[in-house]
Design a protein around this nucleic acid. Structure first.
Lengths: 364, 364
DNA sequence: AATTAGCACTCTCAAGTGCCGATTGCTAAT
DNA sequence: ATTAGCAATCGGCACTTGAGAGTGCTAATT
């Protein structure tokens, strides 16, 4: 029942763990499987009755006790069955879990949903997280692709009030960012059009990462834009957003937690909701996943926050062109269907990859 | 157990209700006040001890029994004190409640927060609901001002992909709406600029409600815009959005429900969250409030949905120019601080009114 | 040496019991 | 009309009990 793996971090963990003998492995796998399916602690009787292990309950008990001692299983209380510990889940995820495949319908559904909101980066990502949260009945969260390696196509400065300008940035991927800025003195609509035009002529086709602050200020001086407006443009072009931990986190499906029996306790629930609101922690998880490839699973105490010790998170990065540019994640109870979630996440990442791959190659 | 209805509750209900004698009134008021403050059922002992009523517990008991019989109070169980019924709350808000005033700080806080996000209608309203939900620790919800009596200033058609156009509508109030549309065939950036220009020249200064479909199609033909794009423009200009029950509902503060003792029960919680997601019901409440003036309170079973029988809602419309154009609402437990919420809502409506009043008078 | 049956033990959970305190409604006295 | 006094009611809490589930240990078996 040994299992190959699908991502970098797991290899490490897998390599560190001593390998369990065949029978222990089989029992551990079965316990995890059964517990994920039922949510009830698993006892020796259940195991021998429902699964054809070819050994007696007594033997199973001995093995369970041993696995318990080695830290792969926990016992909620003396007269209860066993429940996987973080370590148990980890072993399962690294070595035992069978990769699952989605039905063509599911696959197509995801792909279609992602495509539906294309052309608006924020919408795509927001939509993606909602789709995932519905499919998994967990919380899904995501960050939009970072701008740096997108290519400048167009900037539009729209006068929306006496001293208010709305800035819209279009890149090869579509509508990439927009913001409203209050300017210190009034700009005429014509001024703004003129400015937009020179920005557009000058910057057209450049990767955003290549646009220097110098170039911007020079352009700004030529078009006599007020400082605050220039600053806003610089911001939006990513000069600053690269280090910006405030990059917005999109999320959906918080209400799904209500269905999970592990969140009956309102304190847990509250802790997780606060976490969602705070954004930082989840943002960092996604940001970290940008370093690696493929789905990454974090279980219970492996997560950076004690309030998440009852949860697991699956994250996966997606690419723009050939570099990781954003990521999506799922947050649910530790007792989650890891195999299925990994399959879903892979599909989602693929869909985003091809979407952004495709769009990236089109031109204006 | 006669029940007032919720179409035009405040005044009517007040007039319909028989007037209680002075002592009953005083006791009912005190019970409501005490229950709102503590959340515990109120007994005769508490009343005589904490409040100087000048009568003995026994007399209070007789009055309580009488009020109970007349339907103003409920008794959770035989050995508990009394709790206001819907009718009791109704009598309280109609006749007993003392108007509360906010501190200048609170007032200024609301005003400042509303102004912060101005120039973007959606943001203003979204922001408003977040501010309210934080101040009240309840759910706040709102709809953006309807477009119809806003004045056309500018439309921008931005090419964001081979066959994708982003439409931005600016009115006298600022950035009023935007959407992305997929076009059947490709438009060049120049085509779009030309089209924008003729729309802008032609429609400038018109109230959106006065822009006819005819005018649009004529313009569209002159600029040879594809049909789907024209349809999208027509849509956004409000031709259709007037009857559109799907006008987006902004809301915030759902997590506040976790703190309310009346939502310890997850089923209630779930029901309310579903309601939020469904949007229709809350949308209708706001829409109804557009007919009237000032804050409107709906209590328990007066609300259109049985799942809300433990809740109360306060709504208030706000104006653009001199006509109601949008509304905000608060949803919380029946045991809410009605006087304070009404004060907050009035302040919020005022702030929005002056914001939109002010902006409306400015020109481009 | 590994496996197993048998059994005592432990612990949770649900139901049942009894008591305490809060609050009432009634009655008789003021 | 008001009140004091008092029996009655009921929820909630602590406690007990028994059933059920599951274990770990031991001694017998393979």
């Amino acid at each position: 029942m040994k299992k190959p793996k699908n991502s970098a971090p797991k290899l490490d963990a897998g390599a560190n763990e001593p390998e369990l003998d065949r029978r222990k492995t089989s029992i551990l796998g079965t316990v995890v499987y059964e517990y994920i399916a039922t949510g009830e602690p698993v006892g020796s009787a259940t195991l021998t009755q429902k699964y054809n292990l070819g050994i007696s309950p007594a033997t199973v008990r001995a093995e369970l006790a041993s696995l318990d001692e080695e830290g792969y299983l926990d016992q909620p209380h003396t007269s209860a069955g066993r429940v996987p510990s973080d370590r148990g889940y980890r072993y399962y995820v690294d070595r035992l879990m069978l990769p699952e495949t989605l039905t063509p319908e599911e696959r197509e559904h995801i792909r279609a949903e992602v495509r539906r909101a294309s052309h608006q980066l924020d919408s795509v990502v927001d939509h993606a997280s909602h789709v995932l949260s519905n499919l998994t009945r967990s919380i899904a969260f995501a960050i939009a692709p970072r701008l740096s390696n997108q290519i400048f196509r167009h900037i539009e400065l729209i006068r929306i009030g006496e001293r208010a300008v709305h800035i819209v940035l279009v890149t090869n991927l579509g509508l990439a960012a927009q913001t409203t800025v209050e300017t210190s003195h009034e700009m005429s609509a014509d001024d703004l059009v003129r400015a937009s035009n020179s920005f557009n002529e000058e910057l057209q086709g450049n990767a955003l990462v290549d646009i220097s602050m110098d170039a911007l200020t020079k352009l700004a001086r030529a078009t006599s834009l007020p400082d605050d407006l220039v600053r806003a443009i610089a911001m939006i072009l990513g000069e600053h957003s690269e280090t910006d931990v405030e990059r917005r986190l999109f999320s959906g499906g918080a209400h799904n937690l209500l269905d999970q029996q592990e969140f009956r306790d309102l304190r847990n629930l509250r802790a997780i909701l606060d976490l969602l609101e705070e954004q930082q922690t989840l943002y960092r998880l996604l940001h970290n996943s940008l370093q690696g490839q493929g789905a990454r699973i974090s279980i219970g105490h492996e997560l950076p926050n004690a309030d998440m010790s009852e949860c697991s998170v699956v994250t996966i990065p997606y690419k723009v062109g050939d570099r990781n540019a954003g990521a999506v994640g799922i947050l649910g109870p530790r007792r989650m269907q890891y195999a299925r979630l990994v399959a879903l996440m892979n599909c989602m990442a693929d869909s985003l990859n091809t979407l952004f791959q495709g769009e990236a190659s089109h031109g204006s």
